[in-house]
Design a protein around this nucleic acid. Structure first.
Length: 185
DNA sequence: TCTTCGATTGTCT
DNA sequence: GACAATCGAAGAA
């Protein structure tokens, strides 16, 4: 439910006192220790501790030796669940995003979970931060609404060695909408 | 447009 | 010591 509802919300990064932002257009849900694709599948560790915290906080982790990933924690306090932010549509401060994604064409600026963290930029220092607080250097605010007809669901991707039924759960959400398909300003 | 493959390091077993 | 919720370059179609 949270993964669906985050589509259309505005992800805001305050950097050097100025806002940079994008509309969330792709997300994936990870739900509890029983979910064999979730980082919490083997229980609580130092790395995934933020997932066990209260909803609305950030869970930021490093992977493949190169990439930072941003999640929004969901579920009851103490229950490990989070939504991976997989893609955003650049909406504010293109110059910063362009600088951070130098050499990449604009349609590929933020169309992947590690791309958007490089573009804004977001690193592990934001792990545990309150995404509901407009005073945070990174937060989420209201944006636009996508109709269900504009939203595609698919199984999650990039999850290796995950058994059924977790492999096939339709917990990935993608917005296909004229509201965000046009050329960037 | 699609497929293959190397990069690179924190975290867990 | 193995591996990862990925990216981007390179080569093929």
């Amino acid at each position: 439910m949270v993964a669906r509802e985050l589509l259309g919300k505005r992800l805001v990064r305050v950097f050097d006192g100025q806002r940079a932002a994008g509309i969330i257009i792709e997300s994936e849900a990870y739900d509890g220790e029983q979910d064999q694709a979730c980082h919490a599948r083997s229980g609580k560790t130092a790395r995934n501790a933020a997932m066990y915290g209260e909803a609305g906080r950030a869970y930021v982790y490093f992977t493949y030796g190169i990439h930072w990933m941003l999640n929004c924690v969901s579920g009851e306090d103490g229950y490990p669940a989070a939504v991976l932010i997989r893609a955003i549509y650049p909406a504010e401060r293109f110059n910063l995003i362009r600088e951070n994604r130098e050499g990449v064409e604009r349609k590929s600026w933020c169309d992947g979970p590690a791309k958007l963290t490089k573009a804004l930029p977001i690193t592990g220092e934001f792990n545990g931060i309150d995404l509901c607080d407009p005073n945070s250097p990174l937060f989420i605010e209201e944006g636009i609404l996508f109709e269900d007809e504009e939203v595609q669901t698919t199984p999650r991707i990039g999850i290796q060695n995950t058994p059924e039924p977790w492999l096939s759960q339709p917990w990935r959400f993608i917005a296909h909408s004229s509201q965000v398909n046009g050329d960037l300003l």
